[in-house]
Design a binder for these strands. Sequence first.
RNA 1: GUCCACAUAGCUCAGUAGGAUAGAGCAACUCCCUCCUAAGGAGUAGGUCGAAGGUUCGAAUCCUUUUGUGGACACCA
Length: 581
Amino acid sequence: MNLIDFLEIEITKIINNIGYKDEVKLLVSGRPDLGDYQYNGAFSLAKKYKKNPEVIAQDIVNELNKTNYFANCEKASSFINLTINNELLITYINDLNNNLNINFPKYKDELIFLDYGGANVAKELHVGHLRSANIGEALKRLLVSVGYKTISDVHLGDWGRPMGLIIKEIQEMYPNLPYFDNNFKGEYPKLSVITNISDLNDIYPKASIKASKDEEYLEEARQITTALQNGHKGYYALWKSFYDISVADIKRIYNKLNATFDLWEGESDANKYIPEMMEYLESNNLTEISEGATIINVKEKNDNKEIPPVILIKSDGGILYDTTELATLYYRVKKINPSIMIYLTDIRQELHFVGAFRAAYKTNIVPQDTKLEHLGFGTINGSDGKPFKTRDGGVLSLQNLIDLVTIETRKLIKDNIKEEDKNELAEDLAIAAIKYADLLPNRTSDYIFDPVKFSDLNGKTGLYLLYSTVRMKSLLKKCNEANIKPSIYKILSTKEERDIIINLLKIKSIIVKSVSTRTINEIAEYLYKLTNSFNAFYGKYEILSNKDSIKQISWITLTNIVLETNLKLLNILGIDVPDKI
RNA sequence: GUCCACAUAGCUCAGUAGGAUAGAGCAACUCCCUCCUAAGGAGUAGGUCGAAGGUUCGAAUCCUUUUGUGGACACCA
């Protein structure tokens, strides 16, 4: 059991024995000069029992001092400050050495479905896709680490108007392709005029610009979109061709980011469930017609703002974002039926999800006890505080973003690394730097992307963590060669060790909070603190050449625990640690 | 116009399930390498938490008002 859990249970019993009912929660001390942890229950107990809080605090302190849990326990005003006995800390470290998982709480093994990534077919992954992948992946790994079952789906944007625009533009460029020949019979060939992702990348922006200027062009693209959605064979074959090219490239970049998906589904997969869903909705009178469109009204009485209706069928017969969203929910419930479904998108899509979720509950497409959660995240900005763009104002691809940081990390690589490995290592370091920087701010905050700052080896950066962790690995390896191996932690001899151990104790409450708030930033922050406290120790004391073998063994045992903890937490963040930098 | 979010050190950001003296990184200034990766460590300085009221034993955190910034508001995704 985790030491803090143990102490909370013990103190709860002790205060119950003297007549105070409270479920004791220990807080990390806000005044580390006065103690490791604090208990503030005297204030609320004072209200409950109509007594002076200082008297209550003193009563509790008197009882706690009868135990041998604390090296120091005293009250200051009505705060109770606790300094944990070193013997308990030593036991805790040995427990931790046997089982790192005592720091990770266990939740019910409910199934959580995570929808993140959100890549668009025929468009390169860009800056806007970074946070969904990083946060979604980290959240999935966090949830798994505490015992949940998860299924993740990249949920490709592969079925909306952009598809129609691309098909339209390909038609403009190559009007004689068989996909556009309505009399064509037989097997459609693979797309031969566009064979790689860079050919494809230019098409959508071109089409998008034309559409914004040319109403007729846009209208044709609309019609193509609707035809595709209604099963036009030629368009579908063409779509499938560029879909394959695009998805291969999307996978390649997601792999670099360590973003992994159990499912590679998309809006197009929901398409085949739309008729069935519409049949269900209409036969139960759950839809209405408004201005020629089929909608679900999701306003509620006590709304203090206007919630637009969910549009299922446009007045021209086409379908929309909401339609596929709802159809996706429809078949996910039927096929997978998770307890919780989590969506990670830009925070600006909030209103869309409010509508879609309301419609899903209102129509019983999603059972009332299934939780739907939309987790929004903030924007990545440039140094001017505006959304990060290329110099000419275009969208910056994710690969270009990685390259920007790789330029910086390349400078750091030592000469003892083989020349042919340097570029790959530089990119790996850049990705670690980017991921850490991306996960460090609060999920809902916007942040400024600064390649130079992120790839600094000093400061709160991914590279500092990698470097420090690699150094721990290297130390353990050298000690192992000298036959100094982690085993039992015997003495707690320095302030620096104590700081590390107190830090290790904090993990559980950080994990609990991160799981409940679905945030990652405190874990990222914590990694820095733990690593920093280890480095303070590392800088001051010599392990390898130390003459005192009892200290040596204790220290290398502690080092190993910090290393394992770092690796585990970095893994949750989706950051790989190389053997050498 | 309506609604939402944000405003914390020179810069970039934490902290908002109310707790003591508001934290970190960078930048600035001091110190510390015969030693396991100094690509490191220790320290100093830096703040009326946008403003004004209120609730509370206690407010950056909750409530009201106000200023500024960003965003969302049915046939795009």
